[in-house]
């Protein structure tokens, strides 16, 4: 029954990677922007939550009430003041600006929190598990993360297909110039999209900070996992992103079962293999 446990573990790990990847997918989907600071923003959310917990004495879940609005504002202002000015035909500016942001966040965190590893604590929930049959159990907390990933996707789906701003997201993503001709303020639309993406990043960052330790330099690895999940799933397809996350999680879990040293490598290799077989991912967005 060992392999069932491994697969379950991989599936749940996939929820984590999907949660990482949704924000990246969203920003790419709406404005064709690849945020290299994505992983560092996830880590930043962990540290902000850590600070809120330390200073105000709130629990990590309650800290979301502060982290999420803060991150929405951060994303909105960042897009309006900085990133909007980099969008255009030239791919270099958005790449360098988000890379620069990554360096600033990493080293800013190093300066303010030192290089120590941190972890947020949620008490018993972290170690609780549900028994499935006689010798298989799943952790409650990984289940919560997986459920959060699905709820987040459903919520984004509702936002995109059920609201006015969602319609503007899709129209702007299709054809920004035509959107402007319809009276849509695309700069504001982009700012809201990045704000929403940062809310998702905030959720991912805080939940992850409860699950494992983090330090100021753990961002890049999270970016790479998120990136791999997005590419495996197919660019700009949010359910594909979930599948990409699960694929990556399964690959890592199976690799880790073979040899613990091999866990991360297995994920990367499966990503590269999928790149060879299906360079556009499982569910590429229809070209238009």
């Amino acid at each position: 029954m060992d392999w069932i446990a491994t697969l379950l573990q991989g599936l749940l790990l996939g929820g984590v990677y999907a949660l990482f990847a949704i924000g990246l997918s969203l920003v790419f989907g709406v404005m064709r922007l690849v945020n290299i600071a994505h992983g560092d923003m996830i880590v930043l959310a962990g540290f902000v939550s850590f600070a809120v917990v330390e200073v105000l004495g709130l629990g990590p879940i309650l800290s979301l009430a502060i982290v999420l609005p803060l991150f929405f504002a951060f994303g909105y202002v960042l897009q309006l003041a900085v990133l909007n000015r980099t969008l255009g035909d030239d791919l270099l500016p958005p790449m360098i600006v988000t890379f620069g942001l990554a360096i600033v966040i990493q080293n800013g965190l190093l300066q303010s929190f030192a290089a120590d590893s941190r972890k947020l604590s949620l008490g018993e929930v972290e170690t609780a598990s549900i028994a499935l049959g006689t010798d298989i159990a799943v952790g409650v907390y990984p289940l919560i993360i997986f459920a959060t990933a699905i709820v987040t996707i459903l919520a984004l789906q509702a936002l995109f297909y059920g609201t006015k701003i969602g319609r503007e997201f899709r129209a702007t993503s299709d054809d920004p110039e035509a959107a402007r001709l319809m009276g849509i303020n695309t700069k504001r639309v982009f700012a809201v999209a990045t704000g929403v993406a940062l809310v998702v990043i905030g959720i991912a960052g805080v939940l992850m900070a409860i699950r494992t330790t983090f330090d100021p330099l753990s961002g890049p690895v999270r970016l790479l996992f998120a990136f791999e999940a997005v590419i495996i799933g197919g660019l700009g397809n949010i359910w594909g992103t979930l599948l990409g996350g699960v694929t990556l999680g399964l690959a890592q879990a199976i690799g880790g079962a073979i040899d613990p040293q091999f866990q991360v490598m297995a994920g990367h290799l499966v990503f590269l293999a999928i790149l060879i077989v299906r360079p556009r991912g499982f569910f590429p967005k229809v070209a238009h």
Binding site: L91, P94, L223, L224, I231, V264, H268, L275, P279
Partner: peptide, 26 residues
């Protein structure tokens, strides 16, 4: 392999390759 990825995805893809190299030498 990497030329299959365009633009910014090429950028992060090459980064993944560097990670693979690092883990391999481990």
């Amino acid at each position: 392999l990497m030329f299959r990825l365009s633009g910014p995805y090429f950028a992060i893809g090459t980064w993944v390759v560097a990670e693979v190299f690092k883990l391999a030498f481990f």
